[in-house]
Simulated scan of single mutants.
Amino acid sequence: MSEVTNRNIRFLLSDMDGTLLLPDHSLSQRTIDAVRALREAGILFSLATGRPPKAMLQQIEALGVDVPTAAFNGGTIVNPDGSLLIAHYLPATAALTALSLFADLPDVEVWVFSGGDWLVKDAHGPMVPREQHGLGYPPVVVDSYEPYLERIDKIVATSENTELLVELEARLLPKVEGQAQVSRSQPVYLDVTAMQANKGDALKTLAAYLGVGLTQTAAIGDGGNDPAMFQVAGLSIAMGQAEEAVRRQADVVTAANSEDGVAQAIERYILP
Rank of each mutant, 00 (worst) to 15 (best):
V246M: 11
P174A: 12
L85M: 15
R130K: 13
L210I: 11
I220N: 01
E244F: 09
T205L: 08
G50K: 02
T5Y: 08
Q264R: 13
G234C: 07
M16A: 11
V166R: 14
R184N: 04
P227G: 03
R247T: 05
D66C: 07
P147E: 12
N198A: 00
A208W: 05
M195Y: 01
E167C: 08
L84M: 13
L63H: 10
L57P: 03
T254M: 07
V128H: 03
P80T: 12
D153L: 03
G74A: 04
T205K: 03
E163Y: 06
A70Q: 04
E109D: 14
A55I: 07
N257L: 11
L235S: 08
A48L: 01
K175M: 15
V182G: 00
I9F: 06
L21E: 03
I266V: 13
L149S: 05
I266Q: 05
P106D: 08
G50R: 02
K175G: 04
L165Q: 04
L63T: 13
R151Q: 14
A255R: 11
M239E: 09
D107N: 10
D15A: 06
V212F: 06
Q59A: 09
D117M: 09
G221K: 02
V65D: 09
A194V: 00
A219H: 08
G74R: 00
Y209L: 10
L22V: 06
L210T: 06
P80H: 11
G64N: 10
G234H: 09
L210M: 14
G211L: 12
E167I: 02
